[in-house]
Amino acid sequence: MGQAIAFYTLAAFILGFAMLVVIAKDTVHSVLFLVLDFLFVAALYVLLDAPFLGVIQVLVYAGGIVVLYLFVVMLVNLKRPPEAHHDPRRRTKLGFGLAVAVLVELGAIAGYGSSRPATAIAPGAGMPVTGNTEQVGWLLYTSYLIPFEIASMLLLVAMIGAIILAKREL
């Protein structure tokens, strides 16, 4: 019962702030709603017994990525808002229609999945550690060591790319 209350409260906040991110007129307000949205998603991870991922979410998303967005919004000092001029070729209705089609597809997939519930695979086979952080770390440094190293290489490449792109003369 308590879990249901927590889930519905968090879900309402997540979806509400996500709506505000999309419909907010001011880009700065949009970024601030995005921070709140990420914090509630982090709380949802804690509810899902993944506290390590919740902390990562707060540190990387709410702390790092959103600050990057905020800096870009401040640097891009717009004299005229991008939505100001009306574009006759804009297809807002088509956009909403396609979104509804995707929603129906996802609902069909979710309904199909719930009709055949997945069975639990062997929990943590051969894992000598207990606790969420220890188990995730164990997987990262054993079975998923090579993807982990590739992810670090990806971050290095992205860092160099961002520095090159931000240079005054390209």
Partner: peptide
């Protein structure tokens, strides 16, 4: 799925790339 759809609507409807 609902959060995904909100994101898709944002991509399709808004014109500000940020």
């Amino acid at each position: 799925a609902a959060l995904f759809i909100i994101g898709v609507v944002g991509v399709m409807v808004r014109r500000n790339i940020i």
